[in-house]
């Protein structure tokens, strides 16, 4: 992705307020049907526990955090959030196909940084986000969005902590983006 390409074919997205209404209705329907909200980090936790169960079964048994999930008759992957997260991928793919954004593998980054820098920061950012989501009892989907929408105090705390910190540290990472 270079600077000329992205200005020449500026991608077409739906109106953000329409996107917001659809997302809000989805949260409402999800709570109406399941009594719970949506999520994303939970599926990765399941994947972590499923992986750990295979490569280090003894550690999982002695680790109360993983064992509480691993210790059931079903696989740790047999959860609502894993199926929902597969859906997120499929839904993203469908939208990408419809709007013509599914292209060959590529790395998106600011012209001021290299692809390599982008990937190292993406890896580090992912690690921070994953680590923090466990303390936060969920990520932007489960805690910040659905937590706040269901008037949960913790959801609002996570929402403000994520965005407040983002604004507080944005200056130091500005070279990555602008």
């Amino acid at each position: 992705m270079n600077i000329n390409q992205s200005t020449d074919n500026e991608p077409k997205y739906i109106n953000p307020y329409l996107g917001g209404v659809l997302l809000g209705l989805l949260v409402l329907i999800t709570v109406f049907v399941t009594g719970r909200g949506l999520g994303a980090s939970g599926a990765i936790k399941s994947t972590v526990v499923a992986t750990a169960k295979v490569i280090m079964p003894a550690t999982v048994k002695s680790n109360s955090y993983m064992n509480s999930v691993a210790n059931s008759e079903h696989s740790p992957m047999y959860t609502w959030l894993v199926f929902e997260s597969i859906g997120i991928f499929v839904g993203g793919l469908l939208s990408g196909i419809i709007f013509g954004r599914v292209k060959k593998f590529r790395i998106e980054h600011s012209p001021k940084i290299s692809s390599k820098t982008r990937l190292w920061f993406a890896l580090g950012g992912g690690m921070f986000f994953g680590f923090g989501s466990q303390f936060g009892r969920g990520c932007t989907s489960g805690a910040a969005l659905c937590g706040t929408a269901t008037f949960a105090f913790g959801g609002v705390i996570v929402l403000f902590a994520i965005f407040g910190t983002g604004y507080a540290v944005a200056y130091f990472f500005r070279k990555l983006w602008i």
Binding site: F121, A122, L123, G124, G125, G126, M127, F128, F129, G130, F131, G132, S133, Q134, F135, G136, R137, C139, T140, I157, V158, L159, F160, A161, I162, F163, G164, T165, G166, A168, V169, A170, F173, L176, W177
Partner: peptide, 13 residues
């Protein structure tokens, strides 16, 4: 957790 996620958000996008 939110603070750590906030840092991850700005690093990873």
């Amino acid at each position: 957790g939110g603070v750590i996620m906030g840092v991850g958000f700005i690093m990873g996008g």
